[in-house]
Design a protein around this nucleic acid. Structure first.
Lengths: 209, 209
DNA sequence: TGCCCACTCATCCCTCGGTATAGGCGCGAC
DNA sequence: GTCGCGCCTATACCGAGGGATGAGTGGGCA
């Protein structure tokens, strides 16, 4: 059976890596093992729902710092933290930074599986949402500047003639652009276009009110 | 100056309560002091942005359990946890349950002020958003059942005549209900109505597609 | 230079949205 | 019973949406 989800394990203790490897494989999860943060960054990661199981104490860099670096670098992967010698401030920092869980060694297998299960599920949802949004953004990019302007005003609730006034155009021209925007965005109704604009978080065109 | 925000302090140690009281007052924050979770629940809480500073160890009930009870009871107040004798699993549980921070005694005044500042700010935003939503819900409640049905289909992108077919009505009737819904909701355009429906999280009327 | 494309505008025509006016039915409150 | 209200429908009218066809301008690029 092909992998459907992958757990990335970053720990400098090879015996723990292998123990986790067999634990995850026993529940049909794919695995990748790394001895350091650098190895993880250098590796090519499969395009699948995945998560990162990260030891706090790593060669070279703290797992907590690494976690924050990933966020800033735009690598959105759910993180499960673990440590042998942690303290409360560490765990709080990790959780504030969005970790799914923070496990202290030794932990029960089931706790780790629960955390990883939650993490994978969250990544699955994020990937799905990101995919939808990316497709939408692609359509939006294909709009001409004028079409974008018209779309912004239309989804703000302006009538064609008002848009024409706002942009100093003839009403017919607005209709053309409006129709083009609808077609290019694949919106079959104004309602759909409004929802797309919401999803794209287009800056609300502040007209009138 | 009148209070603009309130910190609720729940701790069975009266000397710590007083210390926190003066700390918060020194930065113009209102305070309320309680020796137990029950006292907090029994008290009348002002209608202002606020947060809860909660000791983990309380008479009768754990602060963590209390935090979860509040959530389930629908009391949405940001919580800052603190403890003298905590461990990592406790802190993780608290953070998972949505605590703003988890401080270990003794903590630095500034850390507490930072946490409370974040908590108050979050509550301020939540209250504002809740208020808007409540006003919207009120308008929606005022709609007749038919108007709600029509609104659902309209914001799903259906044309009047399609809605008429869906509901077995004459098109003119749909127009009436549609107009009434717009008027009652205070929407000045279809776009606005769609956004209101989104904000209300109306179940997407699944027609056609 | 020639072509593509974004942008612009016009005229025609049809559909759709929205309001006003007016009427009928059923049900619960007073 | 009468009143109010939600609900349904009809006729008529007008303004807004939107497509088709046609056509002109200017900028970028091979």
């Amino acid at each position: 059976m092909a992998e459907t989800a992958v757990v990335h394990i970053v720990d400098d203790d090879s015996s723990l890596r292998l123990a986790l490897d067999s634990l995850f494989r026993s529940v049909q999860l794919g695995t990748r093992l790394y001895g350091s943060a650098q190895d993880f960054l250098a590796a090519k990661r499969p395009d699948l729902p995945s998560c990162l199981v990260l030891d706090i104490r790593l060669p070279g860099i703290s797992g907590l710092d690494f976690q924050q670096q990933l966020q800033q670098a735009g690598v959105h992967i759910p993180v499960v933290l673990m440590t042998g010698h942690g303290d409360i401030p560490m765990s709080v920092r990790g959780m504030k930074a969005g970790a799914i869980d923070f496990l202290t060694k030794p932990f029960r297998d089931q706790d780790m599986l629960d955390a990883v299960g939650t993490a994978i599920e969250r990544d699955r949802e994020r990937r799905s949402a990101d995919g939808d949004l990316a497709r939408l953004r692609e359509l939006y990019e294909a709009l001409s500047p004028r079409e974008r302007e018209v779309m912004a005003l239309v989804v703000a609730g302006r009538m064609n003639k008002q848009v024409a006034g706002d942009l100093n155009l003839a009403e017919i021209t607005v209709k053309i652009h409006r129709g083009a925007a609808m077609r290019k965005m694949g919106a079959r109704s104004l309602a759909e276009l409004v929802r797309m604009a919401e999803a794209l978080q287009l800056p609300r065109a502040a007209v009138g009110r």
